[in-house]
Amino acid sequence: MDWVFLSELAINGALTGLLYSLFAIGLVLIYKASSVPNLAQGGLTMVGAYVVLALARDVGLPLWLAIPLAAVVMFGLGFGIERVALRRLAGRPVVMILMLTLGLDIFLRGTTLAIWGGTSRSMELGVSYDPLFLGDIFISRIHLVGAGVALALFVAFMLFFRTRTGIKLRAIADDYMASWSVGISVERGVGLSWALASVVAVAAGVIWGEIQGVDQALSLLLLKGLTVAVLGGLDSILGAVIAGIILGVVENVGADFLDPLVGGGSRELIVAAVLILTVMIRPHGLFGRHDIERV
């Protein structure tokens, strides 16, 4: 057993996992306010990356300006989605809202294809591809940057949910009717959660766009992001971070053992196994809340 190699796999797995968390945080934000897994989060992430590129390449702004501007645009888009589409569905069965988010994902993919085509574009963040060595361990710089962004967002949202607005959002997640009864604007709260998730999508879109290029395939991040969110408990941001690290490590280390045995492709199997086993064994995930039953 080569311990250096194993720890390299584990560390890089954990960093990749934090990038999944970066994506999953957006899912958790929307789930917390609407109790719906947002199937369009992949689409939003892709659009976030495209908007950054549009501002940087097509308009010609520097990246340090294009990224925050894209965040503002996406913040508005998130509010717009609630106003135009979700508000009409208030009080309808959750499955209807779920189908709406699926439709939205398809719509966003089609729109980007129509505007920017299907050729992969590069983000060119300017992060060096020279390997970073930690002792004998090789670490990817862009993954390190992305993991840092994920952790920064995690801290920011933990603090946000202690503010008055954050507490109101948590109240909405707990009980719509009771929220209405004390004058909380449920509509505005749901809109805000979509807006924040869209901002997170910009961050995830930039990092993942840098890693795998910007094209419609970015929206497929949903599958791993959703697995992480479910494992973490869907409504827990801490859960999303820890589950991301777990999935990243298990996937990276596991694939190294299994790939020679099955001839490759075991990553997808490991992700599928984690998702299915979570739902079967621990449906509310590692940190998800379950409904309180007093005896």
Binding site: A171, D175, A178
Partner: peptide, 24 residues
């Protein structure tokens, strides 16, 4: 203000946060 039937407090919040949530 309407205190709806069945108490319906925000269960996952603390009582203090329940009060904060209702602040106009």
């Amino acid at each position: 203000c309407h205190v709806i039937e069945g108490r319906r407090v925000f269960e996952h919040l603390t009582p203090d946060e329940n009060l904060t949530a209702a602040a106009p």
